[in-house]
Structure formats: structure tokens, C-alpha cells
Design a protein around this nucleic acid. Structure first.
Lengths: 203, 203
DNA sequence: TAATGCATGTAACTCGTTACATGATTCT
DNA sequence: AGAATCATGTAACGAGTTACATGCATTA
């Protein structure tokens, strides 16, 4: 694509040239949670665990450093915690108007979803190397997992219903839930069909 | 979980203690392709591009070092390329009986699929911060992408049909294709439903 | 008083991609 | 002659997780 006249020189400039990589959306996941009012690292992690965990997750090792970066960038500000009841240490943050603007801008950007790696399909692709019965076991296990996932979705639905929020807010949350349900049901149907296919193969 | 009596000492032993991590299934993706007869790094990459790309992909930066490791582990062996027609440099490999055994063992292991990150759903989760019309645009864009994906699946189907392979082999390949189709269709239906929902929201 | 939960934070490490480097051959 | 494709390989970087470190408060 790009003409590189001198390899050696290009190498020497590497460090200066490279820098602003694509960077994942973690920053906005965290910023978004701040916008919803979850205001500490711990709260954000908990909120993710009960709401977005089926399509987005973050670890403490990412959340705390990112909060620091967001402060540096002026997207959020640190609140000086005024003597919490119980005296526990607790560092709260608030999204700034600038942060909210950044969030809105990000929301407008179209997404390009990379096909996620799926180890089950990879195994099935090489399935002819194994016994059909063995493959059936792992497909059935996946189906069981999907069933559990569907029940988990029911819990999330109650969480959404219970939380105080505008109807619009809830409509968006239910949309993400509908996604999970639709896809899980399609996957379950596929598992069943595949199990039947495997029964028809040499045992 | 584990009782650590002395933090400082534990830290000092870090390098010795940690080593055999979980490690992704890349090794088996490559080993599997070798088992199907794709015998060079380049061939493997190409094969992935036309068959598993929708649920598994690998880059050269991973393939070539992995081939080296697989040789070290005795899972594959290097063929001394006997004067290729054209004289092109070409390094071929063959899976060993040991490698085939490893592959079969791996196939039997049940998989635990982590919920993959989905940036579209993350945006929708925070969608109330934006205009419904803006959200509709990104959902529609996704739907268009899924439509393209479905046509791509048709191409893969012809590839499978054209390739010489046992009916069992083809049945497995078609199963992975069916998965892609079912899920894509479910996602398309969800997009349509979501777009309708967004129409019903404040513009 | 011992375990569990609340709460914050960092260092080391894993895994993999991107960009680069290199060079032959075939197509236009 | 120049572009595209074949073909292999490495160094640097990005993005994040895990394991560890720490300490207070609540519950059994």
C-alpha cells in the first residue's frame, strides 16, 4: 500500500510513527456506566456483572487504570469522598459534560463487528477426526449451557424491571436482552439439529 | 484461595511459579488444518480464509511461530522440500501420529465459550444518551453486514461442495455453516424488530 | 475469631495482531 | 517494466487478564 523507499530508515522511525492505535471500547463501557450513575470502580464492575456481562465485561485490572486515564482526559472527575458512613475508603467519580459529549460521539460511530472466535465450531470443523458420539457430547453440553443462559436472561429482565429508569432507557436494555434470547434460541435449535445429524453418522 | 504467608517471597518466586497458562486453541486450529492436508503456512492461512474465517482466524504472525513450536513438540514434522516446481521456496509440514492423537484428545475436551464482546450491544445499552435515529442507523448498518455475510455463506457452501472429501467430513463442515446461517438470520430478525422499536421512540 | 464481602490498586504475563522486511515468480 | 501474488518470517506493540497486595467492615 504505502511505498517504503528505505527499510532501515523506516525501522528507525517506528517509535515516532506508531502510537494512536485503534483501542477497544473499554473506555466507553466505563464512561457509559458512569453516565448511568454507577460511580465507583467497584460499582461499575458489579453493574457490568448484572447487566452487560453477556455481551461486555471488564476486569478490575482494566477499570481502575481506565478511571485514572479518563480523569486525565477530562471525561470524568474525581469526587473527594466526604466521610463515607462506616468510614470505608471509597473513591467516587462523576462524568463531566465533556465526557458525556465523547460518549454521544462514540455512540454515533458505526461498528464493525469482527467474527468472534468460536472453539465449538472449530472442533466441529475437525469433527471427522473424532467419534460422532464424542462430538455429540460436546454439542449437548453447549446446549445445556445455553439453557442456563436463557434462565439468566430472565433474571436480568427482573433486574431491568426493578431498576428505576425511563421507559426509553428500559426499551434499550430490553433490546440487548432480546438479542441474547434470539441468538441463544437459534443456537439451541442448531444444537438439536446437529445432535440429530450426529446420530445419523457412523457411531 | 491459596494461603500466601509472605507476600514478598511469593513475588520473588513469580517467574518460576507461573508458566503453563491456559493458551488458546490456535495450536489446534493449525494442527487441524495440517490434518486436512494443508501443508504450508501460506496454505493454512488461505484455507482458514475460505472455510473457518467466520468462526476462527489466524494471522501469519501466529501461524509461522506456531508451526515451529509444533515441530518442537513433535506434533508435526518438517518436510525437506524437494525442489519445488518453479524453484520457489516453500516449507511444508506433515502431522505426526502423535500430533493426530493430540488433536483427537483436544476434540474430546468440552468447551466453555466465553460470551464474546459485542460493541453494537454495548452502544445500544447506552443508547438512551443518543438520538433514536442515530441508533437506528447503526442497527441498519449491522443488518446490511449480516446480509452480506449470508451471501458469503453461500460461497462457502460451494467451496465445501467442490472440495473432495468424505460425506462425513462434509456433514461436519455443513454443520458449522448451518450455525452461521441460523445465528445470522436470528440477528437479522432482531435488527428488524429493533429498528421498529426505535421508530416508536421519540425521534 | 475466622471467614466473607467491600474496596482499591499494580506488576507481570499471555496472547495475538500489525507493520515491517525480504525476495521470487507470474500476470498485464 | 511494474503490479500482483506467492511465500516466509520477526520485532514491536496493543489490549487486556490474572495473580498478587492491602486493609477495613460485617457476619457466622
Amino acid at each position: 500500500m504505502k511505498t517504503v523507499p528505505d527499510g532501515k530508515k523506516a525501522r528507525a522511525e517506528d517509535k515516532a510513527v506508531r502510537s494512536a492505535g485503534p483501542e477497544k471500547a473499554s473506555r466507553f463501557a466505563i464512561l457509559g456506566m458512569l453516565s448511568l450513575g454507577y460511580d465507583t470502580g467497584y460499582e461499575i464492575k458489579k453493574a457490568i456483572g448484572v447487566s452487560t456481562v453477556n455481551f461486555w465485561s471488564e476486569s478490575y485490572g482494566n477499570i481502575y487504570p481506565m478511571l485514572k486515564r479518563l480523569v486525565e482526559e477530562g471525561a470524568i472527575r474525581k469526587l473527594d469522598s466526604v466521610a463515607e458512613p462506616g468510614g470505608r475508603r471509597k473513591q467516587a467519580y462523576r462524568i463531566t459534560p465533556h465526557g458525556r459529549k465523547l460518549l454521544k460521539e462514540w455512540l454515533r460511530q458505526p461498528v464493525r463487528l469482527p467474527a468472534p472466535d468460536n472453539e465449538l465450531l472449530l472442533k466441529l470443523f475437525f469433527g471427522a477426526e473424532a467419534q460422532a458420539s464424542e462430538m455429540k457430547v460436546i454439542v449437548a453440553a453447549r446446549r445445556a449451557e445455553l439453557d442456563r443462559q436463557l434462565s439468566h436472561f430472565a433474571q436480568i429482565a427482573s433486574y431491568i424491571a426493578s431498576r428505576e429508569a425511563t421507559p426509553t432507557q428500559k426499551a434499550y436494555w430490553m433490546a440487548t436482552l432480546r438479542y441474547g434470547k434470539s441468538v441463544a434460541r437459534a443456537e439451541i435449535a442448531w444444537c438439536e439439529e446437529t445432535e440429530r445429524m450426529l446420530d445419523g453418522l457412523a457411531p
